[in-house]
């Protein structure tokens, strides 16, 4: 789902591109413009109320090349690399145990900017 009208930061009117979480134009205390949540077993990037207009993009998550069901998603900005931590499971059997994995935010940004519809998750070391 996308709008032709550009989405902008309410504070500085800078354009918001899919995948970013903060407005990079601010030297400090940048407004939170985007968020990543779980939505119908996928990852969903969407804009926040700090933006003018709404936009969202969904991404399927692959683990070892196979699509998995996202059960929970948490942004962890201070991790290195910064990431979204996920619990994923078998979409065909929702009763099975979840596997903890993560997707680097940089990979997520690349995928969304490239117009990809899926992203590969990484296992915790």
């Amino acid at each position: 789902m996308s709008d032709r009208k550009p989405i902008t930061c309410n504070a500085c009117s800078g354009e918001v591109v899919p995948g970013i979480l903060y407005c990079w134009r601010h030297p400090a205390s940048p407004p939170k413009l985007g968020e990543i949540v779980e939505d119908h077993g996928q990852l969903l990037w969407r804009t926040t109320a700090a933006c003018s207009g709404k936009q969202e993009r969904a991404l399927a998550v692959l683990l070892d090349g196979i699509e998995v069901q996202v059960r929970t998603a948490d942004e962890v900005h201070h991790a290195r690399p910064a990431r979204v931590s996920l619990e994923v499971g078998n979409p065909a059997n929702t009763g099975t145990a979840a596997t903890p994995v993560y997707v680097p935010l940089a990979s997520l940004l690349d995928a969304l900017l490239a117009g990809d519809e899926q992203v590969e998750a990484m296992r915790l070391a």
Binding site: G14, E15, V17, I20, L21, Y22, C23, W24, R25, H26, P27, A28, P30, K32, H77, H78, A82, L105, A106, L109
Partner: peptide, 21 residues
């Protein structure tokens, strides 16, 4: 993205990371 550099900023442009803030 594009940033218009202002003379008063000098040689270092302070921004924020769009991923971790």
């Amino acid at each position: 993205g594009e940033w218009k550099v202002q003379p008063k900023q000098g040689s270092v442009i302070p921004l924020s990371c769009p991923l971790c803030g």
